[in-house]
Design a protein around this nucleic acid. Structure first.
Length: 827
RNA sequence: GCCGGGGUGGCGAAAUUGGUAGACGCGCCAGAUUCAAAAUCUGGUUGGGGCAACUCAGUGUCGGUUCGAGUCCGACCCUCGGUACCA
């Protein structure tokens, strides 16, 4: 009598077994190779969504597979618990963000446990807990000491009705998402970390990140954006000279105007006497801070009635204020060459400004400047006096030399990367641990909170209205005294960007319980992370900040390697009906309902089978049922065969049993099994789990038709194949694999079973099938002895009857033989 | 706008390196089983033509390289992710 597949019972039993045996608790072991597998920690938003399930299943499959390869695998999990959604939820549910967050964590942790992930829960961390963020504050003190943290003015989105700063996400069509008020740009003093000091190293080391996807490496290179150019000055009467940077000094003689930011001192000054300029500046205040908007908005400008002196010709160039130039980025002023820059060209066309060509095609081809700018670097300089006829590089060098000689400019390497602004005018985050000696929060008043007074605790029991950070209204929080004195002082009420917490959590996992230091010696045992798994949406920001933070930690002696993540896998999104699953679209599928209905193994199997990890995955209810059907078939196959395979154990005690197989059916089954195994091993290595599952299905299909009771050979082969099937599916569907391993009478835990080896002798075949093409089109196929020479293959191909039909009476020009694959006859 | 992905049957996809396009699964069709249905099992399933053997076409569009292109090169279209305060 065969029992039914009952996932609820099987999964609960396996999970209890792992828990009772502390199967996934791990410590440093000098005798075994370590393997640190990390998945991006979730924001505790309420329930797991399918994106989490996918991410964590991929990480778990990698972890369990590496364990079967014999490694000491560490797989931790934690909570990225600070953030904006908790504040929104707090308003909606009238609940403090802390309470909401902790309840979500409790629930989601239960969900993760139901999915059977092999986490070492002893290492769990929660970023909103003081024992975690204390060390973040301590680290910030070190950054202050090194001059790596500093304050400067920076723009934010200001909601004039709510009197609060808005995140870009909270701005919809230029208006505050709650108030509907037009959002204004406002400059406030904020904390920055000098990531630009590491720009060069962050860029150069991308070359060494061979375990990262090329797309991510390219995106990071472009984000850092190294460029070589020159920086030079336009003298302005009675004013500070205007500094600009350009990567095209070869076009310097084509400058016909200069643009400065609307908030530039020159513009503000001009506005005092010209109301049109004042109005323009006021208008510019309403564009918000997102780069996308800046680049796609209508480019507008107004002449200031001021000129700058061209550094080569001393020609007076008109200065404009423009909405697309930003004060905080670069020098707040740009030169404009409409003939050779498309944006300048469009601006010049619109305002009737001169387009002055100074580059021509070397061959003398004409360019139509009524159509577009000529932006090539393949041209030569013209209409530029002493620089005429030089190519790009020669002109670059000549102009740079001229500027340097005349003390009007210099060569400069520039980065697109900007320093990391870490101040957030929000409550639910890690308090920035500084105090100000006076009410004024200017730079020279900053005093660090001494290490022995850390952590600066975030009050958790607050009333949260959403209009303003409760810290600003809480004198118990902001009123303090200067360190070591009784002089009254005020605390910083801004909190850190939540990327601060996620930039080092992977290191803290290595040191559970460390309460005397941020990290300890255990960090260097586990780090760097061997495999990091997370969403592609983090390709630049999180992954760049984490790399930066790691280098900061290295330079403080906390870790001794250069890069935190050796291998990176970015999994694709989970889609339903062609678009991303999200609450706003109303197309979410609750993982919990799927676990309840089919069990965790089915959900995991479907996730791995539906598409390769790096591609997006289309949710399909029917296909989930199909995954469940496969597990049922596997279950009943083992129930049907277990008695005969158990008895075959005796046969298998002989070391050379495989060589003695005489039954042809058994031989074929074994060949298929080991061919599939070879493919599976390759696919595990390249993390193509969808084809691993497809191969397992093929093996099951074959085993279903194979009779183990025919003779001893068949029983032995059946057993070998079933054990291999069990092992290759164990990382993906661990619960059912755990139970079936027991049913097959195998000793020990499947989680520690040795990964199977391919038997090369089993795969070998006497004959080879070759495709025959005539002129590249498939026409026939032949089977030849595996030992055939190239000449023999050619002869049999040409002699093939079907091939002859297409060769017809044409002369054979060439015969191409691809060994083991095909023959192409060219006529 | 800029940077980076993706586009292959009705659907999810497969195809180490340029070498049999569509493995595996879903759906659908037919059959078996059943009083019937569900479940299960067996077979079929890119499109056109043909009774069939077979044959023509086919991997977003257009063009190129090659004995041979889903794969390489050029241009374009659509779509998704990021764009520095969502995480």
């Amino acid at each position: 009598m065969t029992s039914q597949y009952n996932p609820a019972e099987i999964e609960a039993a396996a999970q209890k077994y792992w828990e009772d045996n502390q199967s996934f608790t791990v410590t440093e072991d000098p005798d075994r190779e370590k393997y640190y597998c990390l998945s991006m920690l979730p924001y505790p938003s309420g329930q797991l969504h399918m994106g989490h399930v996918r991410n964590y299943t991929i990480g778990d499959v990698i972890s369990r597979y590496q364990r079967m390869l014999g490694k000491n695998v560490m797989q931790p999990m934690g909570w990225d618990a600070f953030g904006l959604p908790a504040e929104n939820a707090a308003i909606n549910h009238k609940m403090p963000p802390a309470k909401w967050t902790y309840e979500n964590i409790e629930y989601m942790k239960g969900q993760l446990k139901q999915l059977g992930f092999a986490y070492d829960w002893n290492r769990e961390l929660t970023t909103c807990r003081p024992e975690y963020y204390k060390w973040e504050q301590w680290f910030f003190n070190r950054l202050l000491e090194k001059g790596m943290a500093y304050k400067k003015m920076a723009v934010v989105n200001w909601d004039p009705v709510e009197q609060t700063v808005l995140a870009n996400e909270q701005v919809e069509n230029g208006r505050g998402w709650r108030s509907g008020a037009l959002v204004e740009r406002r400059e406030i003093s904020q904390w920055f970390i000098r990531i630009t000091a590491y720009a060069e190293e962050l860029l150069n080391e991308i070359d060494n990140l061979e375990g990262w996807p090329d797309a991510v490496r390219t995106m990071q290179r472009n984000w850092i954006g190294r460029s070589e150019g020159v920086e030079f000055l336009f003298a302005v009467d009675d004013e500070e000279p205007l500094e600009v940077y350009t990567t095209r000094p070869d076009t310097i003689m084509g400058i016909t105007f200069i643009s400065v930011a609307a908030q530039h001192p020159l513009a503000l000054k001009a506005a005092q006497i010209n109301p049109d300029i004042a109005a323009f500046i006021a208008e510019c205040k309403t564009t918000h801070t997102a780069e996308e908007e800046l680049e796609t908005m209508e480019k507008r400008g107004i002449p200031l009635g001021i000129t700058g002196s061209h550094p080569v010709t001393a020609e007076q160039i008109d200065i404009w204020a423009a909405n697309f130039v930003l004060l905080g980025y670069g020098t707040g002023a740009v030169m404009a060459v409409p003939a050779h820059d498309q944006r300048d060209w469009e601006f010049a066309k619109k305002h009737g400004l001169e387009i002055r060509p100074v580059i021509r095609w070397p061959a003398g081809d004409q360019h139509d400047y009524d159509e577009s700018a000529l932006t090539t670097k393949q041209g030569v300089v013209c209409n530029s006096g002493e620089f005429d006829d030089l190519d790009f590089q020669q002109a670059f060098d000549a102009v740079a030399q001229f500027l340097e000689k005349n003390k009007k400019g210099r060569r400069k390497v520039n980065y697109r990367l900007r320093d990391w602004g870490v101040s957030r005018q929000r409550y639910w985050g890690c308090p920035i641990p500084v105090v100000y000696a006076q009410q004024d929060t200017a730079q020279d008043q900053v005093i660090a909170v001494p290490d022995d007074r850390l952590p600066v605790l975030l009050p958790e029991d607050v009333e949260f209205s959403g209009v303003q950070s409760p810290l600003r209204r809480d004198p118990d929080f902001y009123r303090t005294t200067l360190p070591g004195a009784h002089t009254p002082a005020v605390r910083e009420t801004d909190t850190f960007d939540t990327f601060f917490e996620s930039s080092w959590y992977y290191a803290r996992y290595c040191c559970p319980g460390a309460d005397q230091s941020m990290l300890d010696a255990r960090a260097n045992h586990w780090l760097p992370v061997d495999q990091y798994v997370g969403g592609i949406e983090h390709a630049v920001l999180h992954l760049l900040y984490a790399r930066f933070f790691y280098k900061l930690m290295r330079d403080m002696g906390l870790v001794d390697s250069d890069e935190p993540f050796t291998n990176l896998l970015c999994q694709g999104m989970v889609l339903k009906d062609g678009s991303k699953m999200s609450k706003s679209r109303g197309n979410t599928v609750d993982p919990q309902s799927m676990i309840n209905r089919y069990g965790a193994d089915t959900v995991r199997l479907f996730m791995m089978f539906a598409s390769p990890p790096e591609q997006s995955l289309e949710w399909n209810d029917n296909a989930v049922a199909g995954a469940h059907r496969f597990l049922r078939r596997w279950w009943s196959l083992v129930q049907r065969n277990k008695d005969s395979v158990r008895s075959a154990k005796i046969t298998l005690a002989r070391v050379d049993w495989a060589c003695r197989i005489t039954d042809p059916g058994a031989k074929n089954m074994r060949r298929l099994t080991h061919r599939i195994l070879a493919k599976v091993i390759r696919d595990y290595a390249r993390i193509h789990y969808n084809t691993v599952v497809a191969s397992a299905m093929e093996l099951l299909n074959a085993l279903d038709k194979f009779d183990p009771d025919k003779n001893r050979d068949c029983a032995a082969v059946s057993r070998d194949s079933l054990l291999i099937l069990n092992k290759i599916l164990a990382p993906i569907t661990p619960h059912i694999a755990h139970r079936l391993w027991l049913e097959l009478g195998e000793p020990g835990d499947i989680i520690d079973a040795a990964w199977p080896c391919v038997d090369r002798d089993a795969i070998a075949s006497d004959t080879v099938r070759l495709m025959i093409q005539v002129n590249g089109k498939l026409r026939s196929e032949i089977t030849v002895p595996a030992a055939s020479t190239r000449r023999e293959i050619e002869e049999s191909a040409i002699a093939d009857e079907k091939a002859r039909k297409f060769i017809h009476r044409n002369a054979i020009k060439k015969v191409i033989v691809v060994p083991g694959k095909l023959v192409n006859i060219v006529v």
